[in-house]
């Protein structure tokens, strides 16, 4: 893999990497991908499709499953920055030029 490819994946994954780190990852990822690429060679018969075995979708009633407010304060308290019952983050919309 090229360093630019690793940097593209890192951007998708929202992780900053230096080019030096990206270079090291590129070499390691190449050897790992060469190994896992074995699956491409496995003959599976043309019609095989993935299935989830005995598992199926399970639905439940759309109702409250816990007491209101049971966890609200504990969850808010875990936030790095808050304003009352809101989490505070940097603005999402860009500057108008």
């Amino acid at each position: 893999m090229e360093i630019s490819e690793i940097q593209h994946l890192a951007a998708l994954a929202r992780i900053r990497l230096t080019d030096e780190e990206a270079g090291a990852f590129a070499a390691e990822c190449d050897s790992i991908l060469a190994y896992v690429a074995q699956v491409k060679e496995i003959s599976t018969g043309g019609s095989a499709a993935p299935s989830a075995g005995a598992h199926k979708n399970v639905l439940r009633e759309d109702v409250e499953t816990t007491e209101p407010e049971a966890y609200a304060e504990a969850l808010l308290a875990a936030a790095p920055d808050r304003d009352g019952r809101y989490l505070r983050v940097k603005k999402i919309l860009g500057e108008t030029p």
Partner: peptide, 26 residues
């Protein structure tokens, strides 16, 4: 995380992730 982003990216999804799920079924 990077390898996961790779095997799920378009162009590689069928060759890696979907194939792995088929192997898993088999």
């Amino acid at each position: 995380i990077l390898l996961g982003a790779y095997v799920l990216s378009s162009g590689y999804y069928d060759a890696y992730y979907r194939k792995a799920e088929i192997v898993r079924t088999l």
